[in-house]
Design a protein around this nucleic acid. Structure first.
Lengths: 232, 232
DNA sequence: TGTTAGTAAGTGGTTCAACCATTCAACCTA
DNA sequence: TAGGTTGAATGGTTGAACCACTTACTAACA
């Protein structure tokens, strides 16, 4: 029997979550001023130092804005909602609702397809070789029944690297943080494992031939399969 | 003459930056343990509380991992590099090198193109009307010589909204945080202002007709123009 | 001898109390 | 009325203390 190692939540995390919830629920609206740190800390039954850590984090997430001498103000979550908020929610709240997860996966498909297109335009023959080798390694793991999630991620990241677009790669790895947890589920059924390997080969072939359109389409198809498998 | 309001840097920001630099320069490598908080604080000539704020931020950026009872450890920046790091660098260091900026813009093109494709598939006629109205507003501002950066952002965000993909939107607004600063420069030359308005109309038309392929291409073209104007 | 229980030192997490620097508004003064 | 002063509130920073946890060493026991 396997137990899930329960993540101990820091105090500041609970506080940040609580404030985030209040803001989402509309108790504090965009532009509103939060109570002063001293007062807020007392209300939460926590020390000011700890509260400040939570506020600092919320500030970094652009949920809140601190103006020295004035106070702490709520920013427009709708307008400001950005990737950090998402990742934070995932890391702190330890989970996303199904809809958001699906949307994250969908976004990832577009990003990976873009990376594949770029790779087809920019990869050198040596780099394509590297990709081929990685494919072979993955196929070995698949054949031997091992879990190949890590290598799978490596494959996708390598394609990103060949596309020579560091920011796209950064976005992609952010998505992987979220998706990786579920990827292990995807890599279990035998048929999916095989179709996965096949998909990889088709993508690499398109990149090798320098055909961006096809590379993008193959990647989309490859990931659409995974998306469907995940949500049914 | 316009003065740039100088952002006062908090102490914790300087510290975070300094540590980030040390890690990037390889003084601390992946897996290394940082000195204890007490020792590190003294070395930096700063209070432990302040140091802790910096470390908390670096932890959120996934640059560093805190293990209670053990210490603070450096994570693998290469593997972990994600969007948060990027935005943080932009916000804290107050600037990005040209190459990263270009890459961010490039990524944005792909994301916006994907959003346009989705919008063409998912937007209702009423929503397209909204888009048309926004176009008209922007054209007014262009004609009157005003700065239309905010409305321009609104236009692109609305397309994202019509695509019904919240995560893609979140990523996009993250990119806007970075790009917006430079957008104002782009919106000055008269010819660019006009071609911008024209581009918008073409995009909306493709979305109205429900043609994802064309919507994507129009959006790419529209933004490629801006990219070229920015980088020659 | 080998294992175990206990202990001490070091770590991050949290609290408390004070002081600094900035902002704003109310108030006084010329 | 215009302009300066002052004071209260805000976030920023400091220092010291204690807690909970991890680790490694040590001494006692079987």
């Amino acid at each position: 029997m396997v137990f899930k190692p329960l993540r101990k939540q820091n105090l500041y995390e609970s506080i940040a979550n609580q404030l985030l919830t209040l803001i989402r629920e509309g108790q504090f609206k965009a532009g509103d001023q939060l109570p002063g740190e001293r007062e807020l800390a007392e209300s939460l039954g926590v020390n000011r130092t700890t509260l400040r850590e939570a506020l600092r984090v919320l500030e970094l997430m652009r949920v809140v804005e601190k103006r020295p001498g004035e106070g702490v103000f709520v920013r427009d979550l709708e307008k400001e909602s950005s990737v950090e908020t998402l990742v934070f929610r995932f890391l702190v709240e330890d989970g996303l609702d199904n809809e958001t997860l699906r949307s994250a996966f969908e976004a990832m498909i577009f990003i990976e397809a873009s990376m594949a297109r770029l790779a087809a335009q920019r990869a050198t023959p040596e780099e394509v070789d590297e990709l081929q080798k990685l494919c072979a390694k993955i196929e070995d793991q698949i054949a031997s029944g091992e879990n190949f999630t890590d290598l799978d991620q490596k494959f996708h990241q390598l394609i990103g690297k060949l596309g020579k677009s560091p920011v796209l790669c950064a976005i992609d790895s952010t998505m992987w943080i979220i998706v990786k947890k579920y990827a292990r589920l995807l890599h279990r059924p035998e048929e999916r494992r095989k179709s996965c390997a096949l998909g990889h080969r088709r993508i690499v072939e398109a990149i090798a031939k320098g055909d961006p359109g096809r590379a993008g389409r193959e990647m989309e198809e490859h990931l659409q399969g995974a998306l469907k498998a995940l949500f049914f």
